[in-house]
């Protein structure tokens, strides 16, 4: 846990440095306390560039970092769908993802219309293959 937090800190402070995989991560678990979400294939990781990201309702612009066990990963495309699985709805605004280089993506027009449990459903195109991430987000 502490190791992972340190690794995440390193990701924040040194975006170009390798963000090491954590051997203690149980396979199949998608989300961790430290905010790192694994892709469904398990090969890639994504995290917001903010420790303990807990957004409020409203419009947000957030940077996300895409990586694998060896470090930052370049994706050719990234889409994000905010979704509230308990209620079966998303938001009317379509988020815009901009490639900032070095595995960094800035997502704007990320709109949460109510407090509660949301998911950010990402699709990243990496070397021609689509990797899916489901990142739980608690909106205050």
């Amino acid at each position: 846990m502490r190791l992972r937090t340190l690794a995440l800190l390193a990701c924040f402070t040194l975006p170009l440095a390798a963000c090491g995989d954590d051997d203690s991560t149980p396979a199949g678990e998608m989300q961790h306390d430290d905010g790192i979400t694994r892709s469904e294939s398990g090969n890639f990781m994504l995290h917001p560039m903010m420790a303990d990201w807990a957004p409020t309702t409203g419009d947000h612009t957030v940077r996300f970092h895409l990586m694998n066990a060896d470090g930052a990963v370049q994706a050719s495309a990234l889409t994000v769908e905010p979704w509230m699985p308990d209620h079966g709805h998303g938001s009317s605004a379509v988020p815009v993802a901009t490639d900032m280089g070095s595995g960094m993506w800035e997502v704007s027009s990320l709109v949460f219309t109510m407090p509660g449990a949301w998911e950010l459903r990402f699709e990243a195109t990496i070397e021609g293959a689509v990797e899916r991430f489901v990142m739980p987000v608690t909106v205050q």
Binding site: M84, G88, H89, G90, S91, S92, A93, V111, T113, M114
Partner: peptide, 18 residues
């Protein structure tokens, strides 16, 4: 109007359960 049919960013137009 159902939650999934909202047309405004705030969702203020969601008037029903869907």
């Amino acid at each position: 109007r159902a939650p999934e049919a909202t047309e405004v960013p705030t969702g203020a137009d969601v008037m029903g359960a869907g």
